[in-house]
Write a protein that binds this DNA or RNA. Structure first.
Lengths: 219, 219
DNA sequence: TAGATTGTTAATCGATTAACAATC
DNA sequence: TAGATTGTTAATCGATTAACAATC
C-alpha cells in the first residue's frame, strides 16, 4: 500500500533529485538540508521534504539528509538497484546512440541486443552488442529475460512491433516513435517524443519574441 | 498580453493536439467535436475545450472544430509557421540522428550545420549538412541567423558550450546533455534528459512488480 | 425550428507552499 | 541545553472536471 498512489508529478521529480544527489556525492558532500538543496535545484524546500516524505522519513531533524543514504534510497524507489535487460529495436543513428550510451549500464540497464530490418546491419556490433534480424525477435525475447524494449523506429513500424513485443510478454516499452502506442494497461510505456519537445521550445521562442519585439520601447 | 500567462501544463499538451489533428487530416476528416477527439486522445472533452479557449474560440457551436483550421491555428501558436534555423553541436550518433530526422524540416526547423571537436568528422556531410570544427562556432553563429542550438554532447562540455552560444546571442537551447544548464532567463532551454526518462520507466516497472508479483500478506 | 456542441462559469480535486511543533 | 531542520498539518493556489446557457 505504501507506494501505491503516489502522483506522477512527484515521480517525475525523483530522477532529478537522484541526479543532484549523485553530483553532491561526486563533490564529497556528506549531508545536505532541504534548504540548501532547494537553492541548488531551484525548487522550494517544502516541496523537497513533502516529496521525500511520500516514501519515508529519510532525514533527521537538526541535521538534514545524509547524501549517500538518500541517493541509495531514491535509487531503490526508482528500481535502480535491480538489473534490467533491454533490447533496442532499430539500429539507425538513434538506436546506435542509445546502445553507445554506456551510462545506462551504471544504472542497471543492460542492452543485450539490437534489432533491425536492414540486412546490411545484421551481425554488426555496436559497443560489442550485436545487431540481429527482426525475424528473430520473438525467439529472442522468449529465450532471454528482457524487461525493456526501446523502439527507435518510424511510427508505422512502431505500432506493429509494439504489438509483437507485447505478445511476447514484454511489460515495458521505451518509445521514441512519434506516435502513441495502444497497449494493454499492464504494459508501461514511456514516451520520448522529440518533435513535441522541439515544438515546446518553438512555442517559448515565439512567446519571447512576441513579448519583447512588441514591447520594444524599453532599453 | 493575451498569451502571456498560459500555464506550462496547457502548453505541454498542444503538440499532442497538433499531432492528432495532423493524423485526422491525413485520414481526410474535416471536422471533429471535442467529444470525439477526447475519446481518441484519452483526455476529457472539457479539458480540450478549456485548453483551446485559452487561445481563442476556434470552434463553432453545434458543429465542432474544423480540423484543418484548428491544426493551422495551433501551428501558429507553437510558432511552426515561422522558419527556425538550427545547428547541432556534437556529431556523434545522437547528433547525426537529429540531423537525419527530416521531419523537423516539415515543421520549419532547418538544420544548417553540425559542429564537432573530432577533427576526423570535419567536412563530413550528413544528409547534405556539413560537420564543422568547433573553433568556427562563434564566427558561424554570428554570421548566420541561428535561433536554436541543439546540444548533443557530454554534460561537461555542454555547460561550457552553452555559455559560448549564449555569448553569441542564441536564445534557445535544445539540451540533450544530462545536466541542467545555467543560462540567463531570457534564454529558453528545453531539456531532453534520456536517463531520467528511463528511470521513470524503471519506477513503473518496479511499482508494477511490487503490486502484482508481491501481493503477499498485506499489512 | 430542434439538436448538437461550443465557450465559459462554477465546483471539485490535487498540488504547492507556509507554518510550526517535534526532535535530533 | 540551544540551534537547526525535519516531518507533517493547515492554507493557498492552480488545474481539472462538471454543468449549462449561448448559439450555430
Amino acid at each position: 500500500m505504501s507506494e501505491k498512489d503516489i502522483s506522477k508529478t512527484v515521480i517525475k521529480r525523483l530522477p532529478r533529485y537522484y541526479r543532484y544527489l549523485g553530483e553532491l556525492m561526486d563533490s564529497k558532500v556528506e549531508r545536505i538540508s532541504s534548504g540548501e538543496l532547494s537553492e541548488r535545484m531551484h525548487v522550494t524546500a517544502s516541496q523537497i521534504r513533502q516529496d521525500l516524505n511520500h516514501f519515508g522519513g529519510f532525514g533527521q531533524q537538526g541535521y538534514g539528509y545524509n547524501v549517500e543514504y538518500l541517493y541509495d534510497e531514491i535509487g531503490k524507489i526508482l528500481g535502480l538497484d535491480k538489473k534490467h535487460n533491454m533490447v533496442i529495436i532499430g539500429a539507425g543513428n538513434l538506436g546506435q546512440a542509445l546502445a553507445n550510451y554506456g551510462n545506462f549500464e551504471n544504472r542497471g540497464f543492460i542492452t543485450k541486443a539490437l534489432f533491425d530490418e536492414n540486412p546490411e546491419l545484421k551481425g554488426k556490433k555496436i559497443r560489442g552488442i550485436q545487431v540481429r534480424s527482426m525475424s528473430q525477435l520473438e525467439r529472442y525475447l522468449k529465450k532471454e529475460d528482457i524487461q525493456i524494449v526501446a523502439l527507435a523506429i518510424p511510427k508505422e513500424s512502431a505500432v506493429v512491433v509494439a504489438q509483437r513485443v507485447v505478445n511476447c510478454g514484454v511489460k515495458a516499452i521505451w518509445n521514441f516513435a512519434h506516435t502513441d502506442l495502444n497497449v494493454p494497461e499492464d504494459v508501461v510505456v514511456e514516451n520520448v517524443h522529440l518533435s513535441e519537445s522541439l515544438m515546446r521550445l518553438s512555442y517559448n521562442i515565439n512567446r519571447y519574441e512576441l513579448e519583447h519585439g512588441i514591447k520594444k520601447e524599453e532599453e
